[in-house]
Design a binder for these strands. Structure first.
Length: 494
RNA sequence: CGCGGGGUGGAGCAGUCUGGUGGCUCGUCAGGCUCAUAACCUGAAGGUCGGAGGUUCAAAUCCUCCCCCCGCAACCA
């Protein structure tokens, strides 16, 4: 079975920050879960490199635009490595394959494209059009003066797709998530769609429009088309549609409209299948303040990983806040999660159980002759993944992590109740049953956290001599399993 | 009257449709237990459920009005 998941492609006008890491890790978690669940996955990410802002940034630092793009794009590639991203493709919009794809895509849209005049308030200093509602006292937010400007532009007949889009939202209630965002999009479309200006002639750092001198594509089509470029478009249109049908786009809430309105309209026009779902994540504040360069509180993912660890960060981002809502980042909160959830709950559970087995030779003698209490925990361990599956299906990553931690807590409580340190002296057969259940539970937990914390899961798998390659393994039982030397998962001393 | 979401112990939320001991997670305090990087158990403190009025034997929940916060409101990746 096929599955496709994407991150937005990141605009290279600034350095990567925690928000980029957040979206990427979210998509990565989904991709890893699906792979463990037996799907053939295509997971793509990349960089969006065209547009006047990039050209101007390059100019500002006295760099050739291509060279500048290479350097900036590499920073995002470095981030992908730093956060242990399992992407199948890292796409750059400046690549030749994308130029070909975007231009072919444009041609498919041509029946809905016409030439007209684009007009708006233009700030010469910023070299960009300023939206009406952002103009204060006749000036751009930057304080630059604006003037009414008109230029020739190609337009896409978005207005023709209003009803079709509404029908689609109606027919596929899961097309947009979370629900609150879905309402916003629907009300936006209902309020009436205007045609979309999709070309620019004032700059040339972009993909040229086929057979048209001087016009380059404006971001909408160039950037959005990355998703099908990555799937091999324009080759193999059949495969592209098939993957799109099972595709989840993870996006930031600020770009939801492009993905939930423009993109599906383009795809309808081009005759390509629409994605299954577009999910908008929220934003992080830092210590309750909006992150901004001027305030200097932008969270640097490289710094956090260096100081607190990668899996720790990956865990925190999805346990602290419900995916889809805004959240607050603080080192204090991160430290607490690491101490209480990771070291005390999970780390200690693994330690107390496996160390106990180590103490008596590192060999588990299985006993599946369970008491009622043992049977309950065993069942919960066995169906952990199926409970998570329905949550991951809805991108409820936070809920899925809670599901895992419920099992962690249950296992800790079970250990307290069963008192294996006493059973070892009184009832070895009972002890073996208790340890068997605990080991099954820990193994399930390792699978449960694997998409979120791949390195930590790997450590646990190694302790227990488990392959850890597929959820199918959970069906296999332990037989006289030999365990290897262990060490604390999340040591408290640094 | 542009559309939508929300205001519940220190924090974050559930409960509101289908009125009737106000609950969950975390945090705070006291005690118990202890194999382990400890967890768990028991008990305690802490809320006029945004405000006012109304319906009712009974309102967080139904009705009316008001206040406040947050999204969206098209060229912002």
């Amino acid at each position: 079975m096929n599955f496709c998941v994407t991150t937005p492609i990141y605009y290279i006008n600034g350095d990567p920050h925690i928000g980029h890491a957040y979206a990427s890790i979210a998509a990565d978690i989904i991709a890893r879960f699906k792979r463990l669940d037996g799907y053939t996955v295509h997971f793509s990410t990349g960089t969006d490199e065209h547009g006047v802002k990039v050209a101007r940034s390059a100019e500002n630092v006295g760099m050739d635009t291509h060279h500048f793009s290479n350097i900036m794009s590499q920073k995002f590639r470095d981030l992908s490595r730093a956060i242990n991203l399992s992407e199948d493709d890292f796409i750059r919009t400046t690549e030749e394959r994308h130029k070909k794809s975007a231009q072919t895509f444009w041609k498919l849209l041509e029946k809905d494209i016409y030439k007209s005049i684009y007009s708006g308030w233009y700030s010469a200093r910023d070299e960009e059009y300023v939206p009406e509602n952002e103009i204060v006292d006749g000036k751009a937010p930057s304080g630059a003066p604006v003037e009414w400007m008109e230029e020739e532009s190609y337009f896409f007949k978005l207005s023709a797709y209003q009803d079709k889009l509404l029908e689609h939202y109606e027919k596929y209630p899961d097309f947009i998530g979370p629900n609150a965002r879905r309402n916003e999009v629907i009300s936006f479309v209902k309020s009436g769609l205007k045609d979309l200006s999709i070309s620019r002639s004032k700059f040339n750092w972009g993909i040229p429009i086929p057979d048209s001198d001087g016009h380059v594509m404006y971001v909408w089509i160039d950037a959005l088309a990355n998703y099908i470029t990555s799937l091999g478009f324009p080759e193999n249109k059949e495969y592209v549609s098939q993957m799109m049908e099972n595709c989840v786009h993870v996006v930031g809430k600020e770009i939801l409209r492009f993905h939930a309105v423009y993109w599906p309209a383009f795809l309808m026009s081009a005759g390509i299948t629409l994605p299954k779902r577009v999910f908008a994540h929220g934003w992080w504040t830092c210590d309750k303040e909006k992150m901004s360069k001027s305030v200097g509180n932008v969270v640097d993912p490289f710094y956090i990983i260096q100081n607190y660890g990668l899996d720790q960060l990956r865990y925190f981002l999805f346990r602290e806040v419900r995916f889809g809502e805004d959240g607050d980042f603080s080192e204090e909160a991160l430290k607490n999660r690491i101490l209480y959830d990771l070291a005390n709950d999970l780390g200690n559970l693994v330690q107390r159980v496996l160390a106990f087995i180590q103490k008596f030779g590192g060999h588990l003698t299985v006993n599946y002759d369970f008491s009622d209490q043992e049977r309950i925990l065993f069942a919960n361990a066995k169906n952990l993944v199926s409970r998570m599956r329905s949550q991951i299906e809805k991108q409820d990553l936070h809920g899925a992590l809670n599901t895992v931690w419920n099992l962690v807590s249950e296992s800790n409580k079970f250990t307290n109740d069963m008192r294996p340190w006493e059973l070892v002296k009184t009832d070895v057969s009972r002890l073996n049953a208790v340890l068997t259940v605990l080991c099954e539970s820990i193994r399930s937990i390792a699978f449960g956290i694997a998409p979120f914390m791949p390195d930590t899961a790997r450590k646990i798998f190694n302790f227990m001599n488990v392959e850890g390659k597929s959820f199918d393994e959970i069906e296999n039982n332990f037989i006289d399993q030999k365990f290897v030397e262990l060490s604390p998962l999340f040591p408290k001393e640094k």
